[in-house]
């Protein structure tokens, strides 16, 4: 896990250095540090720094939430979107784009998306009740995801404005391009609060390895664990979706990939997966810029393009192990 820290640091630095404006290494960091140097400082501080920071934050959030969800459900197919936060956040964003609010007020989109994520948490709590088992919560999450996706499609199909439709479709593919430092400040406190909640779940997730009954008798407060997991996941995933759109496969593949490195222990997987997620999103965002510098290749498209074959490879390896 420690080995992932320098990887993230190197990718972060690379993300700062790669872009259409060719800026030298020394020049770049000097401008970043001092804020002097006119255009270069502007590019570093207003464009590249937010992009790199958001890459770490979004990737870390998705990796962490994915590890938490898989640990909680004891299922390697679980992913952060399972409780409906990402599709509700997407719905909020689509409403902002469709209604024109996003055009008149730049922060309307992330704020509406956060509102959507919050609504999904309230809805899931109302649906599942205080003693709801994991299965009930998941079914509630699936229902909320389906409603969110259906309403999004409804808005798209009824939209009188083809430009808004195009904008929505592109937004939903997920991207870190053209974000500002304001997006960082908006997402950071929510992600930090959510991550702090998820960080408290390690012991409970370890105990859950042996099933819910065993965990409860090992002194794990199951109700508190459930609340921390749902609210924490909704916060980090909602905030990630609000600033980056839908970035798929990170929360599913990264925990899966790193599990053997932490000997399967769920509490160790949480920080490892957060670092791994950050590394994957930073790398994908760099690749987006390198592969098609003049076209806006979407981040979410790339993570899915890379993530899906990786996942197939894992399945292939698993099959060989069982044979």
């Amino acid at each position: 896990m420690i080995a992932l820290i320098p990887v993230v640091a190197v990718l972060f630095a690379a993300s700062l250095l790669i872009g259409p404006a060719g800026i030298g290494l020394r020049e770049a960091f000097l401008a970043l540090g001092t804020g002097q140097g006119g255009d270069v400082a502007l590019i570093m501080r207003e464009i590249r720094l937010p992009r790199a920071l958001l890459g770490v934050m979004v990737g870390g959030s998705l990796g962490l939430a994915g590890a938490a969800m898989q640990g909680w459900l004891r299922n390697p197919l679980a992913e952060p979107g399972l409780i409906g936060a990402s599709s509700s956040a997407a719905l909020g964003a689509v409403v902002a784009l469709q209604s024109g609010l996003a055009a008149s007020f730049a922060l309307a989109l992330p704020l509406m998306a956060l509102g959507g994520a919050l609504a999904s948490v309230l809805l899931i709590a109302a649906l599942a009740g205080p003693r709801g088992s994991a299965v009930v919560l998941i079914l509630a999450g699936v229902a909320i995801s389906a409603i969110g996706a259906a309403l999004t499609s409804l808005l798209l199909s009824l939209s009188p404005n083809p430009y808004a439709v195009a904008e929505i479709v592109f937004w939903m593919m997920g991207s870190l391009a053209d974000r500002s430092i304001v997006h960082v400040w908006l997402a950071l406190p929510i992600m930090a609060a959510g991550a702090a909640l998820l960080a408290t779940t390690g012991r409970g997730l370890d105990a859950l390895t042996l099933g819910e009954d065993a965990a409860a008798t090992m002194g794990i407060p199951m109700r508190r664990l459930r609340i921390c997991l749902i609210v924490g996941t909704a916060a980090v995933v909602g905030a990630a979706t609000a600033v980056a759109g839908a970035v798929g496969f990170v929360g599913l593949v990264v925990p899966h990939l790193l599990r053997p490195w932490v000997q399967g222990v769920p509490s160790r997987l949480l920080p490892a997966s957060a670092l791994g997620g950050a590394a994957m999103v930073l790398a994908a965002d760099i690749a987006v810029r390198l592969i098609a510098p003049d076209r806006d290749l979407k981040l979410g498209v790339l993570t899915a393009l890379v993530g899906a074959p990786l996942f197939l490879h894992l399945i292939w390896k698993m099959r060989r192990g069982e044979a």
Partner: peptide
Amino acid sequence: KAAFLPQMREIAWPMPVDLVVGLVG
């Protein structure tokens, strides 16, 4: 203070035996 062995035997993750025995402290 009681320990419990549920009927359903479940070890969800690929953990080595000694880590399972030491689960939760």
